Amino acid sequence: MESVLIVDDHPVVRGAVKIVLRQQGFKRIYETDSGNEVMRMIRELKPNLVVLDLNLPSLDGLEVLGRIQAAEVGCRVVIFTSQEPEFFQDRCMRAGAAAYVDKTKSLEHLQKAVHAVSGGYTYFSQLPTSSVSKTPFQLSEKHMIDQLSDRELTILQQLARGRSNKAIADNLHLSHKTVSTYKTRLIEKLNVDSLVHLRDLALRHKLI
């Protein structure tokens, strides 16, 4: 692998990632802070690898990952994010990502992931299976969150961050009515009474 695209909205993070990638022998390193730019850059630059954050200010990383896989552009994707692995690693794996690295870990994990993916392998962490530390209430909420589609989870996070229906609709290229329908469905599926409780749930499970 020779070329890579870094997708992250934090310049310091992109700088740290570039150091790791240069150590792994990448010669052409491109970067963007916008999910909306990813598909255009992939088509123009044809990177072998994409290092993708999930928490982006424009188009959500899960949506970007879905578009990359749907386009069958031939590049492999390493997810490098602070999003809770408990909720996102399996989703990213099913969506075609080759690796998932938690930003709260040392950069050595990113280095190992890039090395593995460059060699044709995958890199995913073994998640804890114990539920001893969770209350029955939290376990019930986790089950409900796990049942959400990727699009529902994305909209849940954006609603919990206080974004308006219009802003979410513009971001995801949906109609205002569609987002409103998603909001109603989320309130029902997660058994909450309002957006305030929706935000509380998201905070409890480290989704925002």
Rank of each mutant, 00 (worst) to 15 (best):
M1D: 02
E2R: 15
V4H: 03
V4K: 10
V7W: 07
D8V: 00
H10S: 09
P11R: 13
P11L: 10
V12G: 04
V12D: 11
V12Y: 10
V17M: 06
V17N: 06
V17E: 08
K18I: 06
K18V: 08
V20N: 01
R22A: 12
R22C: 07
F26G: 08
F26C: 08
F26A: 03
F26E: 10
K27R: 12
R28M: 10
R28K: 15
I29T: 02
T32M: 12
D33G: 07
N36M: 11
N36F: 02
E37N: 13
M39P: 03
R40K: 15
M41G: 01
I42R: 08
E44T: 13
P47R: 14
N48C: 14
V51G: 06
L52W: 02
L52R: 06
D53C: 07
L54Y: 06
L56H: 14
L56Y: 01
L56V: 05
D60T: 03
G61P: 00
L62F: 12
V64H: 05
L65V: 07
L65E: 09
L65Q: 02
G66T: 05
G66I: 07
G66K: 03
R67M: 12
I68A: 01
A71K: 06
E72P: 01
V73D: 00
G74Q: 02
G74C: 09
C75S: 03
C75N: 11
F80S: 02
Q83L: 12
Q83T: 11
D90R: 15
R91Y: 09
C92T: 04
M93L: 14
M93Y: 13
M93H: 12
A98L: 08
A98P: 01
Y100Q: 07
Y100W: 10
S106G: 14
L107M: 15
Q111F: 09
Q111N: 14
A113Y: 02
A113R: 09
V114R: 02
V117T: 03
S118R: 14
S118Q: 14
G119E: 06
Y123P: 08
F124L: 05
L127P: 05
T129E: 14
S130C: 10
S131I: 13
S133Y: 14
K134Y: 15
T135W: 09
P136L: 13
F137Y: 10
F137S: 11
Q138F: 07
Q138E: 12
L139M: 11
E141F: 11
H143F: 11
H143Y: 11
H143T: 13
L153W: 04
T154D: 08
I155R: 05
Q158T: 10
L159C: 04
A160C: 09
A160W: 09
R163F: 15
K166S: 15
K166C: 01
A167G: 10
I168V: 10
N171A: 13
L174D: 03
S175Q: 12
S175A: 04
H176I: 09
H176R: 09
H176D: 15
K177S: 15
S180K: 08
S180G: 13
T181V: 13
Y182D: 01
T184F: 09
R185L: 04
E188N: 08
K189H: 05
L190N: 02
N191T: 08
V192C: 01
V192T: 01
S194G: 06
S194V: 07
L195C: 03
L195Q: 07
L195M: 05
H197W: 03
H197K: 10
R199V: 00
D200P: 00
R204I: 00
H205R: 06
H205P: 00
L207V: 05
L207Q: 06
L207T: 04
I208V: 14
